[in-house]
């Protein structure tokens, strides 16, 4: 009975099971990442930045914070993105910032999604007093406007590292996801397959884990992507305002120095364009990959036809 209820239809359908090993199946799950042009682009960009982040010390030609070169250079063969007013190599800073941004972004994105899931799914499924308490906490965190709260906490932490910033972002930014998860759980909780699972004697915890969560996989994956994007943008914004340790290496901090040293008015576009583009490209790759996630998990988005014939058949079987 359980397997029928779970039918994530197309996966079961397209496997005529001449016994594939686990690895092929694992790779098969990533197929939509490559077949769709949008997500292939996103995935490629993502891999490039992942590569940069992992091998930053090998790629970057100089120490990112060593202020030992000629200041205020325009791009040259030795310094691809020029140098800062204190003589730091901007290209090396750019490369090393990718690493911090990836760690902070994904760490914060995944952590906040997990917290959001706990609050949202439990609250939405249980209802009653549990829901009241959990959504009360959620609302409190929603009320605290993210960036403003972050700014205040940063003011008190004075000169935090990007990792502390990421942690704070995760701990304050999960509420939006929790709310989405809660409302989705509430609509799912009334569906027949949940009632069936409940009547078959499944425990609440199992229903939440094996029935509700898989059915909102696209929302969860989307939430991770967007929470990561949000964390990257928030970290950049805080660093730009100068509320993070101004000696840390991150794209936001680069923008802080660029705007504080009048790079705009001097026309030093090579200083403030690369960090923003870096953030934008990583963000874009996340958004594009989200299309693939939608494709994998939401059959309704697959084609023009809204209702699949075999969907009916499996439901009846």
């Amino acid at each position: 009975m359980k397997t029928e209820l779970q039918t994530s239809s197309q996966h079961n359908m397209e496997a005529p099971t001449p016994r594939r090993n686990n690895f092929t199946i694992f790779l098969g799950a990533f197929k939509p990442f490559f077949t769709n042009a949008k997500s292939a682009t996103g995935f490629t960009i993502f891999l490039i930045f992942l590569f940069i982040a992992i091998f930053a010390p090998l790629i970057a030609p100089y120490e990112p914070s060593a202020a030992i070169y000629l200041p205020n250079l325009s791009p040259t063969a030795d310094h691809w993105f020029g140098t800062t007013n204190t003589g730091q190599d901007i290209y090396s800073q750019f490369i090393f910032s990718a690493r911090n941004t990836m760690i902070v972004g994904f760490g914060a994105g995944i952590l906040s999604t997990i917290i959001g899931l706990i609050f949202g799914v439990v609250g939405g499924y249980r209802g009653g007093l549990t829901d009241s308490i959990l959504s009360f906490v959620t609302n409190l965190f929603l009320v605290m406007p993210g960036l403003a709260l972050l700014i205040v906490i940063q003011a008190y932490m004075t000169a935090s590292t990007p990792f502390v910033t990421g942690l704070i972002i995760a701990l304050t930014g999960w509420a939006w996801g929790a709310r989405v998860f809660r409302s989705q759980t509430m609509t799912l909780a009334n569906r027949d397959f949940i009632s069936a699972a409940r009547m078959s004697g499944m425990s609440s915890f199992r229903i939440m884990l094996t029935q509700i969560c898989p059915n909102m996989m696209s929302i969860i994956a989307g939430n991770i992507m967007f929470a990561t994007l949000g964390a990257i943008l928030a970290e950049a914004g805080l660093a730009f305002l100068g509320f993070q340790d101004i000696n840390s290496i991150s794209w936001g901090t680069m923008l802080y120095w660029a705007s504080n040293n009048a790079a705009l008015i001097r026309g030093a576009w090579w200083w403030f364009i690369p960090p923003g583009l870096g953030i934008g490209l990583v963000g874009l790759s996340l958004v594009l990959m989200n299309f693939a996630v939608d494709q994998i998990t939401n059959p309704r988005l697959k084609g023009q036809k809204r209702r699949k014939k075999h969907g009916r058949k499996t439901a009846r079987a």
């Binding site: 914004g237 936001g252 923008l255 705007s259 923003g276 953030i279 934008g280 963000g283 874009l284 958004v287």
Partner: peptide, 14 residues
């Protein structure tokens, strides 16, 4: 979405 992925303060700077 490309616009959304860009940090909007950077777009503002541009």
């Amino acid at each position: 979405m490309a616009f959304q992925a860009l940090p909007y303060f950077w777009v503002a700077l541009l």
